[in-house]
Computed example of a mutant assay.
Amino acid sequence: MESAPTAGKATPKKAVHQQFQFGPWTMSTCKSHILESEGPQKEKFDKEMQLPQLPEMVFAENFLRVQHESGCGLEFNALDALRLVDAHSDPVKVAASKEWQGARSDCEHIKNVVSPFDWTYTTDYKGTIVQEKTGTLTVSPTLDRIDVEKLKKREPIHFYEDVLLFEDELSDNGTSMLNVKVRVMPSCFFLLMRFFVRVDQVFIRVNDTRIYHEAGTNYMLREFSSKEEKTVNIPAAVHTDPNEVSKHLKLTCEIFEKLEFPQS
Score class of each variant (00 low, 15 high):
5 P>Y: 00
7 A>N: 08
9 K>F: 06
14 K>M: 11
14 K>W: 00
14 K>Y: 00
20 F>L: 12
22 F>S: 04
25 W>C: 08
26 T>D: 12
28 S>M: 06
29 T>Y: 12
31 K>E: 07
36 E>K: 13
44 K>Y: 05
45 F>C: 08
47 K>C: 11
48 E>H: 07
49 M>P: 04
55 P>M: 08
56 E>T: 09
57 M>V: 02
58 V>D: 08
64 L>E: 06
64 L>N: 08
77 N>K: 15
79 L>Q: 13
81 A>L: 11
85 V>G: 14
86 D>S: 12
87 A>V: 00
88 H>Y: 14
89 S>C: 10
89 S>E: 07
89 S>F: 05
91 P>W: 06
94 V>T: 12
96 A>Q: 04
97 S>R: 06
101 Q>Y: 08
108 E>P: 00
112 N>P: 12
115 S>V: 03
116 P>K: 03
129 I>E: 06
130 V>H: 07
133 K>M: 10
140 S>H: 08
140 S>V: 01
142 T>L: 09
144 D>G: 14
146 I>C: 15
158 H>L: 10
162 D>C: 10
163 V>Y: 14
169 E>Y: 03
171 S>N: 12
178 L>A: 04
179 N>Q: 10
180 V>D: 05
189 F>W: 11
190 F>Y: 13
190 F>C: 09
204 I>P: 02
208 D>S: 14
208 D>K: 14
209 T>D: 05
213 H>E: 04
218 N>F: 10
221 L>G: 13
224 F>Y: 13
224 F>L: 03
225 S>W: 02
229 E>Q: 14
232 V>H: 06
236 A>Q: 10
242 P>D: 01
243 N>Y: 01
245 V>P: 02
246 S>P: 00
253 C>H: 11
261 F>G: 03
262 P>V: 05
262 P>H: 02
263 Q>G: 07
